[in-house]
Simulated scan of single mutants.
Amino acid sequence: MKKLILLFTLLLVGITSCKEEGPKKPKHFIEKNKMVDMMYDLSILEAAKAQNIVYQNNFPTAKNFLKKKYNVDSLTFAENTKYYASDLKEYKKMYETVKARIDEDIKKNNGGKPIAPNNDAGVVR
């Protein structure tokens, strides 16, 4: 009888724990277009920092940048990132939009020509 009760309890716990509920919509929700803009700006900021290692102290931190430009604190950004990332297909589309904007900027700043892919990236010779 004890085994039957244990089996029933485990089965009940297993069934109820399999609910897939994504994170709730954040209290301070950021609209998708604004979130994509923020992701784009942070990508540009991080790329600039990576290119100018000596001058990294001159660049704002991501936290300060978000606060100053978008009036959004880092916790709100993190909660919204978690919310959007719970739908991987949609989150991937958001990053593809960011990549397309970066590629468009590169092309515009490169005389209308896209930059040729570097197949040797990351290869030490």
Rank of each mutant, 00 (worst) to 15 (best):
K2G: 13
K2Y: 14
L6D: 05
F8N: 11
T9W: 11
L10N: 11
L11T: 07
L11Y: 07
L12Q: 15
L12S: 15
G14A: 04
G14W: 08
I15A: 05
I15P: 06
I15H: 14
T16A: 07
T16Q: 14
S17C: 11
S17L: 13
C18E: 04
K19M: 13
K19Y: 11
E20M: 09
E21G: 02
G22I: 07
P23D: 13
K24W: 11
K25E: 07
K25T: 10
K27L: 14
H28P: 09
F29Y: 10
E31F: 02
E31I: 05
E31R: 11
K34N: 11
M35V: 01
V36L: 12
D37E: 03
D37W: 00
D37I: 00
M39H: 00
M39K: 04
D41R: 13
L42I: 03
L42W: 04
I44T: 08
L45E: 04
A47R: 08
N52A: 09
N52T: 06
I53G: 07
I53Q: 11
V54S: 00
Y55P: 05
Q56H: 07
Q56T: 14
N57F: 07
N58C: 08
F59S: 10
T61L: 14
T61C: 15
T61W: 09
F65S: 08
L66R: 10
K67R: 12
N71A: 10
D73T: 06
D73F: 06
D73Q: 03
S74F: 14
T76E: 13
A78N: 09
A78Q: 09
E79H: 14
E79T: 12
E79P: 00
N80L: 02
N80K: 06
T81Y: 04
T81R: 08
T81H: 03
T81C: 05
T81D: 09
Y84K: 02
A85G: 08
K89Q: 15
E90S: 05
K92N: 13
K92W: 01
K92M: 07
Y95S: 11
Y95F: 09
V98T: 04
V98W: 03
K99F: 10
A100V: 07
A100W: 11
A100P: 12
I102S: 04
D103H: 06
E104A: 09
E104W: 10
D105Q: 02
D105G: 08
D105F: 08
I106D: 15
K107R: 14
K108V: 10
N109I: 02
N109H: 03
N110Y: 03
N110M: 05
N110T: 01
G111P: 06
G111Q: 13
G112D: 01
K113V: 06
P114Y: 01
I115M: 07
A116Y: 05
P117R: 05
N118G: 00
N119M: 12
V123Q: 07
V123G: 00
V124H: 13
V124A: 10
R125D: 06
R125V: 14
